[in-house]
Design a protein around this nucleic acid. Structure first.
Lengths: 109, 109
DNA sequence: TTAGTTTATTGCAATATTACGATTAATATC
DNA sequence: GATATTAATCGTAATATTGCAATAAACTAA
């Protein structure tokens, strides 16, 4: 059905999945890479930097923004996007604590 | 168009996105949670543990398996799945090194 | 005011994902 | 053998995602 049954999972499971999903597209990884490299950016730069159309970039930026990972300031007719430090660290901590579980105790396979 | 233009991104960006995407569904997070908890499992257990049908669970297990995160041993008419330790650590390292980039240097927003 | 610049939104087509009933394949048990 | 159990696969429906052309909105500059 293409629809996720979120109600049967815990808040933590849903939250982890949402965060991972936002990172689950190379364009959004590339946008974040670029933000980390130049420390600030606008949408126009990204259209040249990445190879996607302006509407597509705008849409990916919107998803990153909705997830809280970036924040934008309107500056004349440009928009300045940055990483949201607090949200980034929060996400990092959640994902890392999931990934840092120790899988080295299986004895069946 | 619903299709990702992977060819315009780096291998690292595509690889990170693929790993994140696999974690981008709460059912797969729940399956991994369960594997971490009980250290071994079979598909039947998961159908009761999680609230999805057997074919749906099987499909999610297939994706985890394709990503290399779990491995399964056939044991009679059951299948025993475990975390693939090497692949898990590899994924962990890649994602953590991405998340550990320091966003605290922006001065525009 | 008019024209240019920049980003967001709308609308749509193509493809992907999620979910499950029905079925299959393989083994286990009687 | 016949029947039960387990997990994978097939087929299909519903929904989501990706991408872009066209357009709108908001500002800048002449």
């Amino acid at each position: 059905m293409g629809i996720t049954k979120t109600e049967i999972f815990t808040d933590r499971q849903n939250s982890l999945a949402i965060m991972a999903k936002v990172l689950g597209h190379p364009a959004r990884i590339a946008i974040l890479d670029h933000l980390f490299n130049i420390k600030a950016c606008v949408c126009g730069d990204l259209v040249n930097e990445i190879g996607l159309s302006q509407p597509t970039i705008s849409q990916h930026l919107k998803e990153l923004k909705q997830a809280g990972l970036i924040k934008g300031n309107i500056d004349g007719n440009k928009v300045c996007y940055c990483i949201n430090e607090e949200a980034w660290q929060r996400m990092r901590n959640n994902i890392v604590s999931f990934l840092d579980q120790d899988p080295y105790k299986n004895d069946c396979c």
